[in-house]
Nucleic acid binder design. Structure first.
Lengths: 230, 230
DNA sequence: CTCCTTAGTGTAAATAATACACCCTATATT
DNA sequence: AATATAGGGTGTATTATTTACACTAAGGAG
């Protein structure tokens, strides 16, 4: 029985975590505290351990570098250029997630690999370590694409939100303005929003109705996604 | 400067190559000639070399195991369960492609890893080595999904094809029957088919018009894909 | 009470999706 | 020559979806 060759090869995970705050789309970056790219901004990412599945590694790594737990991430692409890591061959599996920023969730790295973790507006990202800019871009395209046919925008909003907030989020991700009446008609027609008996508070203008995402009805929409008609 | 750990970890590529022949959707399988899973059917797949990008590795591996060259493949998922390979940790990056079977293209493995390569109908696949059944299924879902919003079906047909052949292909991939008139109307409306001055030959019934895929107009359709309206 | 800012609403027109059935034509058969 | 066979090819009415477009309503600030 042949034996596997032993390359000096390792895998890593990188996470593109989207948040929405103050009307801006943001991603989570860390400031690296180790070489290579010490002191650079980077996506939260690190090496997968020998006996760890990719999905679990992604959870662990995100937690260790940012303090965030229980975030559902989905794999979206694997980057394997030969020279993407200066110290050797590392292929990296990229994950993304969209999460709700309930107030200022504290970001506290639990390893010293990251000096700190911060939310960074995507429209003004700094230069990132490794090929992380490319990874971010591919992740951004992924959610832009996905939001067009799946109701994933809710993940980014607080549990209760107004239709204007929702529209604004779509506009930011799709990078275009939408018609207010058509947007509302369409959204409400999907039947996946539950209107609450509650209004926005603390605004100095007419308060808007609050809505919730109705997870039960989500399934129906999702089911139709692949339809080609008769 | 820290140094990367040296795990006994390797990456591999597995390819899910779709073809369409005799009205059936098929994929390319090899019969393995090496352990582990010697004598089993498997997806064409092998280890990535130390200084080889993933995309190039995919091309090389497909060629070596099946003799097929110049196939445009796209990465679709990375499988990294700890125990997916009996001899150690191997994560595998899966690629898919849809190709045209111009007559009986010969399949000749150029390494002894594969004893032979054959087209196998997807509706009657044997047990596959490793987690290849899972990989195939994910790849199949990928194309089923993609065909619903992108004109990729043409890749599977001969350059000149009839509308009935095209419809039949959609039906096989989507696993449902479509209405002939509606299908034609829709397809022709996309404006991505070029009608030829030529007819089907060798059939014992009224010969159908032949069409070609119009690559120039493809771009337009593709461009609209992400649209959310105004 | 006025101003400012955002909330909230309707309709007509165009386009796309669906359901549905019959005649046409090329070859093979007798 | 007539007939059988098998798939080729076409139209329309109905419904649902998408688009474009502009004003009044409410609430707080001053």
């Amino acid at each position: 029985m042949e034996v596997l060759p032993k390359f000096d090869s390792v895998f890593s995970i990188d996470c593109v975590i989207f948040g929405f705050d103050e009307g801006e789309l943001k991603i989570l970056l860390i400031e690296r505290n180790v070489e290579p790219f010490k002191d650079w901004w980077a996506l939260p990412g690190y090496l997968v351990k020998e006996n760890e599945s990719l999905d679990l590694a992604a959870e662990r790594i995100l937690y260790e570098l940012t303090g965030l737990r229980d975030i559902f991430m989905e794999q979206f692409y694997t980057f394997g250029d030969v020279d993407r890591h200066p110290q050797g061959r590392v292929i990296t599996v990229a994950y993304y997630a969209m999460i709700r920023l309930n107030g200022p969730k504290e970001l506290k790295p639990v390893t010293s690999v990251a000096r700190k973790a911060v939310w960074y507006p995507v429209k003004d990202l700094p230069k990132l370590a490794f090929d992380h800019t490319k990874i971010f871009q591919k992740g951004f395209l992924k959610i832009r694409n996905k939001i067009s046919y799946q109701p994933i925008a809710f993940e980014l909003l607080p549990e209760k939100f107004t239709l204007t907030q929702l529209q604004h989020l779509y506009e930011v991700i799709l990078n275009k303005t939408l018609d207010k009446r058509n947007f509302r008609k369409k959204m409400l027609n999907y039947g996946i929003l539950k209107e609450l008996d509650e209004k926005q508070k603390g605004v100095s203008y007419r308060a808007a109705k609050l809505y919730k995402f109705d997870r039960r009805k989500y399934a129906k929409i999702f089911q139709n996604e692949l339809s080609f008609g008769k």
